[in-house]
């Protein structure tokens, strides 16, 4: 078997890996390890926890590969394992879960700026990045996961629903609340950006 695994589709690699082709599984690991690690970091923030999830995810994938029947894509499957593993990690840590109703700040007065969209790069500095991560962390875990998978990783509502074992309606509802809450947490950056003027230049 001298096929170049790099040129093969995920589907074909899964098929080969199921037939014990180790290079095929290694290629799948290579293709998805960054995605898995990145998602884990976003969900857990801690590099050690993310590494645990990375290892756990690929071990589970390796052990469960033969039961993977291809009804969903490999990427959805691996995301699902990652999300489940990260979720278990979060539960073990017993992070406080706050009801979104309690945590909701929508009724609080918001100082809405008269703000027009500008270049994203203007806002995306280290401070903003940290605030963005904090904003995700401030969400109850179930909402944070939906937000990360949908708006950070760019998966579809249907894929997020499948990964988290939720209805699409539940995904949309959680996403809506999560988005508004995250936006509210970042509002002051938009205000600051406006007061600094174009390109964030201070007078």
């Amino acid at each position: 078997m001298t096929q170049d695994v790099k040129s093969l589709s995920d589907e074909k690699l899964v098929e080969l890996a199921q037939a014990d082709d180790e290079r095929a599984f290694e290629e799948l690991v290579g293709r998805y390890e960054t995605k898995v690690y990145s998602l884990s970091i976003k969900m857990l923030r801690n590099p050690q926890d993310a590494e645990d999830v990375l290892q756990d995810t690929f071990l589970r994938a390796y052990r469960g590969l033969k039961s993977f029947k291809g009804n969903s894509t490999f990427s959805t499957w691996i995301y699902r394992i990652t999300a489940n593993s990260a979720l278990m990690k979060l539960r073990k840590k017993q992070l406080p879960t706050v009801s979104i109703e309690d945590a909701d700040e929508r009724d609080a007065p918001i100082n809405i700026p008269d703000w027009a969209p500008g270049p994203v790069e203007q806002l995306l500095n280290q401070e903003t990045r940290e605030a963005m991560q904090d904003a995700i962390e401030s969400l109850p875990a179930e909402f944070g996961q939906v937000f990360v998978l949908r708006d950070v990783e760019g998966l579809s509502n249907a894929d997020v629903a499948e990964i988290l074992d939720l209805s699409v309606a539940a995904v949309k509802s959680r996403l809506h609340r999560a988005r508004l809450k995250v936006r509210n947490r970042l509002m002051h950056f938009f205000n600051d950006s406006r007061s600094r003027g174009p390109m964030g230049a201070r007078p």
Partner: peptide
């Protein structure tokens, strides 16, 4: 506008390399 910008910002977050 602010919601759109928020979502744009998150779309620009790079993957974290292993």
């Amino acid at each position: 506008d602010t919601l759109t910008m928020t979502l744009k910002l998150y779309k620009h977050v790079d993957d974290t390399p292993v």
